[in-house]
Design a protein around this nucleic acid. Structure first.
Lengths: 222, 222
DNA sequence: AAATAAATTTAGATTTGTCTAAATAATATT
DNA sequence: AATATTATTTAGACAAATCTAAATTTATTT
């Protein structure tokens, strides 16, 4: 009922790769984890024996219900630590992931539940991803990429799918962060760039390269 | 320049076993770490190659200067996490050690230095043990066991050498904690128990079994 | 449908940290 | 001082997690 760091990394990666119904392939996972496909196969066998995986050889695989539960536990730990690092220790956005990667493997339920309480039961991490609760429940808020929303509708930034320092830099420059309310005023079909307006400020242009990582949701408290 | 969890555990244990000048033996270390002596010998060879250890076979061993530096880094992490768990997450005294044992192996200098700052640069952990600073400097405050202090001298509790729930219970019951100022009023040679007084409160008796774990120092700000 | 290419698995090796059993060195006892 | 006891080390094995190279299965092309 407790898993090695390596097993946890595999479980987490599989969770992220498999969508709602999808299967994952050996190559995908080996790319994700930067290991050789042969190593992946070895681990798949192990996880299958432990009943965390639905897997028949050559057929691809996905997490069992139990496996998904374990994955959500790991993700809970990861995201709570990210929140802690960002909120309390003032780590910048692009620094939290690497450290949380290590902290997430500290397994003490009490530690995590107390940390959750100390942080005030946050519902999303600094990148806008939802944090599963003690029971593994995870909010699936409806979100949509700003490249796909209708014009002239004010929405709230709730997720950024790229956490590099470069991305942080460009977003900061344009005063975009989690919770920012914005409106798409125009789409330029030539290069798929967008004209954005935040509140009463001067509208500005966002390239497609940036825009495709910015996701919004309907405003919570209008 | 980075060490495995296992290596770190050996280094830390050697640091604790060796006094100021002393040598450590294979058996002592194997008892401490609950491994077989043969495993200890294997690791000693490895740590010697890495120049962390002064070791000639059959002659005992102790940390090199470099080894001591590494040990102090690990102890710094351990004690800062203990402080965090106790102070911020409200873990009780006897619960912090086990969790800190895991957290101490998360190696990010930035994490630890920011944590230190966040906690307000604490100088001692919840058991009264000093926390090394960024440069590995550790305060060696003069302390003395209450079984050994002269009578009628008010001193301040600065260390408790036993962290079981039972110890916590008895100390709590007698209103003794880190920083408590107390005076030994009488020593009973029959059973080596002590009569203690805290402030103007009713004096009480402490058994030798408890007293030998309670250490005090001169009062800082008289 | 056969041939080719790509993905996956198997077989066997390697590293780290551990173990047991046997050999050797140091220490204690008669 | 010789012997017995204890401590330490060596030798060889094992489990976990990885790797390379070869074999096998599935998918794609002609």
């Amino acid at each position: 009922m407790t898993y090695s760091t390596s097993e946890e990394n595999y479980i987490k990666a599989i969770y992220h790769l498999q969508g709602d119904e999808g299967m994952v392939t050996t190559n995908e996972l080996s790319t994700e984890l930067k290991t050789r496909p042969a190593s992946v196969t070895d681990m798949l066998k192990k996880l299958k024996v432990k009943k965390l995986l639905i897997y028949e050889k050559y057929q691809g695989f996905r997490l069992s219900n139990e496996g998904r539960k374990v994955a959500l536990g790991i993700i809970r730990r990861h995201r709570l630590w990210e929140f802690f690092l960002s909120e309390k220790l003032k780590f910048s956005w692009d620094e939290v992931h690497e450290v949380a990667e290590q902290l997430e493997h500290v397994t003490s339920k009490k530690l995590i539940d107390k940390l959750d309480e100390y942080l005030g039961f946050p519902r999303v991490d600094p990148h806008g991803d939802p944090i599963p609760d003690q029971h593994g429940k995870i909010a699936t808020h409806e979100r949509i990429c700003i490249t796909a929303i209708p014009l002239h509708q004010v929405m709230e930034v709730c997720h950024v799918g790229n956490q590099t320092p470069e991305m942080l830099d460009i977003l900061k420059h344009n005063h975009i962060s989690m919770g920012t309310r914005m409106e798409v005023r125009k789409k330029f079909s030539f290069d798929n760039s967008l004209e954005i307006r935040i509140g009463r400020h001067q509208p500005f242009i966002l390239s497609e390269a940036v825009a495709k990582f910015v996701w919004v949701k309907k405003i919570d408290n209008p």
